[in-house]
């Protein structure tokens, strides 16, 4: 009887926890910064890309740019959105473990979080849901805006894009951001501090991708988390990545990585002293 009652409450506890996590995210300046990076970053790069395409075409030298399609100008800016997603995934966890100054008691928010929601899997699931909703919302604004801006800047000079494949790439980019954010969240559960995951993940997705370096050694490196999903949104106009996984396969492999990371972090988070 009591058992039954407890089980009935569980979905409500999760719903409450999700709403609480959404509120936390909305009122944390660091997550606002993450959203700003995810929205404004790709838009800015898209504008730059689109102008260089337009200038190259207008000057009669389209060979100077790798592509002349607006979609390409927009999707090659998508890695900036990945960085925003990484920041969001990291800060949602690291903010729980940031200690207040000793002058204010030196406490950490995780104490308050677990006092209100002692079931740790519920806490982690609620955080994952909040991150997914935030990333998808950012993608829903950013990607159409980037496509629109690129199309507007390049205008009639563009190589036209087909709607179907472009929409699929937009969905793919949103999925890539979401899965990356979930992996960043899971890794930060293990480290608790956000510093190392932020540095490693941002460098890896902007300056040097370790996976892409390794693809020169073995094509198996295309199965690594960040490389697996690259074709979700990235075309290969120069034919550099012929061994990259196809979008569907790559997306599934990347999703499997994200689930794996989440499984490990759940196991650690439920067993570890807070």
């Amino acid at each position: 009887m009591t058992r039954l009652r407890a089980d009935r409450r569980r979905p409500m506890t999760l719903l409450r926890a999700v709403v609480a996590e959404l509120r936390k995210t909305a009122t944390l300046p660091a997550s606002a910064a993450a959203t700003a990076v995810a929205v404004l970053g790709p838009l800015g790069i898209t504008v730059l890309n689109a102008f260089s395409v337009r200038n190259a075409i207008r000057s009669g030298q389209p060979g100077l740019v790798a592509y002349t399609s607006p979609a390409e100008a927009a999707f090659s800016a998508a890695p900036l959105g990945t960085i925003g997603a990484i920041i969001l995934g990291v800060v949602v966890i690291s903010s729980e473990f940031t200690a207040n100054s000793p002058d204010a008691g030196g406490g950490r928010q995780i104490t308050a979080t677990l006092a209100a929601t002692p079931r740790r899997l519920v806490v982690l699931a609620a955080k994952a849901v909040a991150v997914v909703l935030n990333v998808l919302a950012a993608a829903a604004i950013t990607l159409p805006a980037c496509l629109f801006v690129a199309d507007f800047v390049i205008g009639d000079l563009a190589t036209p894009d087909d709607l179907g494949p472009t929409a699929a790439r937009a969905a793919g980019a949103a999925l890539y951001w979401t899965l990356t954010a979930l992996m960043a969240l899971a890794i930060t559960v293990l480290t608790r501090s956000g510093v190392i995951p932020l540095i490693v993940l941002i460098v890896n997705s902007s300056l040097v991708s370790v996976s892409m370096v390794l693809t020169h050694v073995t094509t198996l490196a295309y199965y690594l988390p960040d490389a697996a999903g690259m074709r979700l949104f990235a075309d290969d106009p120069l034919g550099e990545f012929e061994h990259a996984l196809a979008p569907l396969t790559g997306g599934l492999v990347m999703a499997a990585w994200a689930l794996g990371f989440l499984a490990v972090s759940s196991a650690v988070f439920t067993r570890r002293d807070a």
Partner: peptide, 9 residues
């Protein structure tokens, strides 16, 4: 250990 509130909230 004090409030348990994040300092930027």
């Amino acid at each position: 250990d004090g409030s348990g509130a994040h300092r930027s909230r």
